[in-house]
Design a binder for these strands. Structure first.
Length: 126
DNA sequence: ATCCTGACCCAAG
DNA sequence: GCTTGGGCCAGGA
């Protein structure tokens, strides 16, 4: 369809104009935000992205978490509504880690009323 | 240039 | 509740 072409066109144009904006800076901002999440609390991918100053970049948060390994408290970043998005073993692993930190679940999802971390962006510093 | 793929999100049905 | 389509984004093939 044409919308797909339009998207592709816009994307390539953007790439050319921004000359591949340093993902370094983006990653650093996101890392900083993720490290703000305390034990026993969680935040969603999109919340992390927004708090880092990159709304709509929730997918990049995933990429960052994947390549960062255990350098970041990855278990504290979850899907919207408090749902664990990993597959198979990893999903189970994340749940265990969270429960170990005191995070409680209601069925399949995290009890967000008790564990949702609210970013105070004005306090995020390097 | 195009296609595909995610640890995504959300409004609809 | 659950499924689906459309919207998002960069990186790799």
């Amino acid at each position: 369809m044409s919308t797909k072409r339009a998207v592709e066109r816009t994307r390539n144009l953007t790439r050319r104009l921004l000359k591949a904006r340093p993902s370094e800076q983006r990653d650093a901002a996101m890392r900083k935000v993720i490290l703000q999440i305390p034990r026993g609390e969680v935040a969603t991918y999109s919340q992390v992205a927004a708090a880092a100053g990159y709304p709509f970049y929730h997918r990049q948060v995933v990429q960052l978490l994947r390549k960062s390994g255990d350098a970041l408290p990855w278990q504290r970043v979850v899907g919207a509504g408090g749902v664990i998005r990993l597959k198979r073993e990893m999903a189970h692993d994340q749940r265990l880690r969270l429960e170990m930190e005191g995070v409680r679940f209601r069925g399949k999802r995290i009890a967000m009323e008790d564990h949702q971390h609210v970013f105070r962006t004005w306090k995020i510093r390097s």
